[in-house]
Design a protein around this nucleic acid. Structure first.
Length: 569
RNA sequence: CGGAGCGUAGCGCAGUCUGGUAGCGCGUUUGGUUCGGGACCAAAAGGCCGAGGGUUCAAAUCCCUCCGCUCCGACCA
């Protein structure tokens, strides 16, 4: 392929609306172009890279025995109403009506669609287990699209679904996909870590996310350098240190005018935030609850939601707080709230807490010398906080580290949530009807592309891993108007293509510096310089993008194709 | 959805406070000199100043409404 025939427009300056390196580079390198917020065109270079990621995904899915199919993006509302997700998905789903006023959605995912499909075809245990997948555009009406392909309204996802006769089979399918994912991301040149995750509204409990570790990632991950435990902060647990608080005298109210936040109260008492217990009022599915956590920690709303088995947990508004505590916001505490029957849940680390300071449920007052067990009616203790760096690993007890990650894939055990709703059953060999056990497995294909760039770039541009590069090789033809030099480039292009290597020949009438800068920006794994000067010196220059100039080699023309292939290996 | 900022040439921006000829850099086109890490000279093309309404002799600039984009937060199968 010749550059002068390609739709490529590199930019010298960073786009004004990009924040993170990968987004800037994808735009500058002519990989993607924004149409509107959260909507991007894949330019020819981007399309080539995308196809390579897709191909890796296909090969690994096929190797795992999954079968590719393609289901409609436009999904009738009835499917979603069957599982109740027509309402549960809320504003996240794009909805529309056809001319006959039939409601439909642009698929954000396809559990309903695939369950309906499989139910209609599979009726016997002989047809199971089954894994199907598709690579398709998905739609989500994100409240805040950002960072280019990282969070967009329309994106490309590989979604796979497994159907098994029993829990053991579902477990096998789960790990089959899990290991396929490890291979997919490794082949894409991505350092991706599986981490334990929260299932959200998706269903059952068992789920792992695959995260490409990167500072620009949107998710926090707690990981243990000793034993390898890793979990999304939404889920990450910690081992509790033993608590041996001394007995304390009777609780006593202390006036604390205008001290509401932990910082203010801590300054007032001259104590560390950890000496306090912070109490927050939440509304869980319409009912108020109190959540107590150490003053230096934050509530993990995902854990609260899961612990309470609630659909929605939101921080209470000021009126509710006043009704529950009997005091303005800022003075809530677990001891004798105005609404005596409100459940009070405390973080597990507070079990045995004595001598702590809490809100007094009265304006401008806090209680000191509180013994939680003695003075408050704690309904229950549970793990309710967000882990922090230094918290102890729940598995081995060593201090954990905090990292950030880009979620590029997730595997779920769904159980029978969807197959029950659709009555997707099969017959056993004894003609008994049993519900199929399901799993679902997603790879963010377009997001993976950006994660690769986020992990693999330098100040000059992208450094594509060969497996997903738009072109593996760029031939910088320095003297395109000299026929004998141009012929060397074209011959080399043909020789490489014969070996199945993608080549882009930069045949523009540009100065060498421009071509070198662009080759570095786009990030072709191997750069070959063909110029009159080099040929006079004995051949062409071969350099890998990941190496510095000192590794550049002069290779005789006759051996060039071989040397380039070797450089890519 | 709350808070903040920004919409001026393909891209990056100045001009807006204090109303009066539409600017700069990059890119593009043409000619010339250059030619191994984003060259130089000369000429040129390219604008409904986000949209609509108002104030004014006069609006990119002041006022109102709307739309779009970005960031922080909330949210995120």
């Amino acid at each position: 392929m010749k550059w002068t025939k390609s739709l490529i427009q590199t930019l010298r300056e960073d786009p004004g609306d990009a924040e993170i390196d990968s987004h800037k580079l994808l735009v500058r390198a002519s990989i993607i172009k924004k149409l509107a917020g959260g909507l991007y065109t894949f330019l020819p270079l981007g399309m080539r890279a995308l196809r390579k990621v897709e191909r890796i995904v296909r090969e690994e899915m096929d190797a795992a025995g999954a079968q590719e199919l393609l289901m409609p993006i436009l999904q009738p509302a009835e499917l979603w109403k069957t599982t109740g997700r027509w309402d549960a998905m809320g504003a996240n789903m794009f909805r529309l009506r056809d001319r006959a006023e039939h409601e439909a959605a642009l698929g954000p995912t396809a559990e309903e669609e695939v369950t309906d499909l499989v139910k209609s075809i599979v009726s016997s245990y002989r047809q199971l287990p089954l894994i199907v997948y598709q690579i398709q555009t998905k739609f989500r009406d994100e409240t805040r699209p950002r960072f280019g392909l990282m969070r967009s309204k329309e994106f490309i996802m590989k979604d796979a679904y497994s159907f098994d006769v029993d829990a053991e089979g579902a477990d096998r399918s789960y790990w089959l996909m899990y290991h396929a994912y490890e291979r997919i991301f490794a082949r894409c040149g991505l350092k991706a870590t599986p981490v334990q995750a929260d299932g959200g509204d998706m269903g059952d409990s068992m789920t792992h996310e695959f995260h490409a570790l990167a500072d620009a990632g949107e998710d926090g991950i707690a990981s243990c350098p000793k034993c390898g435990y890793a979990a999304n902060l939404e889920r990450a647990e910690r081992r509790l240190a033993d608590r041996a608080d001394a007995e304390c005298p009777a609780a006593e109210s202390v006036p604390t005018p205008n001290a509401r936040t932990i910082e203010e109260v801590a300054a007032f008492f001259g104590r560390e935030p950890s000496a306090f217990v912070k109490t927050l009022v939440y509304v869980a599915d319409g009912k108020p609850v109190m959540i107590c956590v150490p003053g230096d920690r934050d509530v993990n709303e995902v854990k609260v939601k899961r612990f309470l088995g609630a659909k929605a947990v939101v921080l209470a508004d000021a009126r509710t707080v006043e009704a529950v505590t009997g005091a303005p916001v800022g003075f809530a505490g677990p001891v004798r709230p105005a609404q005596a029957d409100v459940p009070v849940y405390a973080d597990a680390s507070l079990k045995g807490a004595r001598g702590v300071i809490v809100g007094a449920n009265a304006a401008d007052a806090h209680l000191k010398n509180v013994d939680l067990a003695r003075d408050a009616a704690i309904t229950d203790y549970a793990d309710l906080i967000i882990c922090g760096a230094g918290d102890l690993c729940p598995t081995c007890g060593q201090p954990m580290e905090l990292k950030r990650g880009i979620e590029v894939g997730q595997v779920f055990k769904l159980g029978t949530k969807y197959t029950d709703a659709f009555n997707a059953v099969y017959k056993t060999d004894k003609l008994e009807s049993r519900t199929m056990i399901m799993g679902c497995y997603g790879v963010g294909v377009s997001r993976t592309l950006q994660a690769v760039v986020e992990q693999s770039h330098d100040k000059d541009g992208i450094i594509w891993p060969a497996a997903v590069a738009p072109f593996a090789v760029c031939i910088c033809l320095l003297d395109p108007d000299r026929a004998e030099v141009a012929q060397v480039a074209t011959d080399l292009e043909t020789a490489l293509e014969t070996k199945g290597i993608d080549v882009l020949v930069d045949d523009r009438a540009e100065r060498p510096g421009v071509k070198f800068k662009d080759a570095d920006l786009i990030g072709f794994p191997v750069r070959v310089v063909v110029g009159a000067k080099g040929l006079a010196n004995g051949g062409v220059e071969v350099k890998r993008r990941c190496d510095d100039k000192s590794k550049m080699r002069i290779v005789p023309v006759a051996e060039a194709a071989e040397a380039i292939a070797a450089a890519l290996a």
